[in-house]
């Protein structure tokens, strides 16, 4: 049974695209056919993070408007056979997305894939509401910072009201993905702790991604962070999160937490 996941946050710059690419690659590595769909029409970036920016011929808007067939627009990942990208349009604006068009594309994708991951644009307008419209599962990407937490709360409200599932009286399965987390600063009391954010938003936690230079490195290289260096701290966090989304029970850890004596000394000194 195909599952549609929306990666959303309300606020921009918290890591939606990074998380979409990383989770997409992690799910595809389980040998399950996965497509990542960019809904950020006009400001597409998922192609760049996936390293497929030079291979985009057709996009989501072309498919919706009937200029291209879905298989023509899908780009197969060069590293993983089971991973595909459906890019957004760069030249059109978000009004090109129609509710009927998106519904048709989603229904067709459901026939061919196990996982359909929709990368939502920031904000709460058309692009964002259409990205979440058909979701079975929502991954709410949040930074431990007041404006991000507030916007996530707003998005949670929309997921409970504006999705197809909500309108049918069902629930969208919601998961919190805490990104850019710095355990040292949280321990010092200068950053909201995991438990603070969980208590405020009251949705289950699916992963804690530590702040890391590996994320920038991966996007520089055009590789999902889970493929760029699968043993880096953020990659481990995303791999675990993907297993939880797929229904496995995995103990929650903050990757990179376990430092040796030297690491601890340096951590303290930096603090």
């Amino acid at each position: 049974m195909a599952k549609v996941i929306v990666v959303t946050s309300g606020k921009g710059g918290v890591g939606k695209t990074t998380s979409t690419a990383a989770l997409g690659a992690a799910l595809a590595q389980r040998n399950e056919k996965t497509v990542v769909v960019d809904f950020d029409v006009g400001l597409r970036n998922l192609d760049l993070v996936m390293g497929a920016e030079r291979r985009v011929v057709y996009d989501l808007v072309n498919v919706i408007q009937g200029d291209a067939k879905l298989p023509q627009a899908l780009i197969r990942d060069k590293r993983l056979d089971t991973l595909f990208l459906l890019p957004a349009s760069q030249t059109r604006d978000k009004d090109c997305l129609t509710a009927e068009g998106v519904e048709r594309v989603m229904a067709e994708l459901r026939k061919h894939f196990d996982w359909i991951i929709c990368d939502s644009p920031a904000g709460i307008e058309r692009g964002a509401t259409l990205a979440m419209r058909h979701a079975d599962i929502a991954v709410i990407v949040t930074n431990p910072e007041v404006s991000s937490v507030r916007d996530s709360d707003r998005i949670i409200g929309l997921l409970d009201a504006k999705t197809e599932r909500a309108e049918r009286g069902e629930r969208v399965e919601k998961h919190l993905l805490l990104t850019r987390y710095d355990p040292v600063r949280a321990e010092r009391g200068d950053m909201l702790k995991v438990d603070d954010v969980l208590e405020i938003l009251s949705i289950p936690l699916v992963g804690i991604v530590p702040e890391s230079t590996d994320v920038l490195r991966a996007s520089n290289l055009g590789a999902p962070v889970t493929l760029a260096d699968s043993r880096s701290a953020p990659a481990l966090a995303y791999l675990d999160a993907a297993r939880r989304i797929a229904g496995e029970t995995v103990p929650m850890t903050i990757p990179g937490e376990k430092r040796g004596l030297l690491g601890k000394l340096f951590g303290r000194r930096a603090a």
Binding site: R150, R154, G189, I200
Partner: peptide, 17 residues
């Protein structure tokens, strides 16, 4: 430390929103 203040402000704000 600033985190407790952040937490408190969010709780009040979100209760209203």
């Amino acid at each position: 430390t600033s985190a407790p203040t952040a937490r408190e402000r969010l709780q009040v704000l979100l209760a209203h929103e």
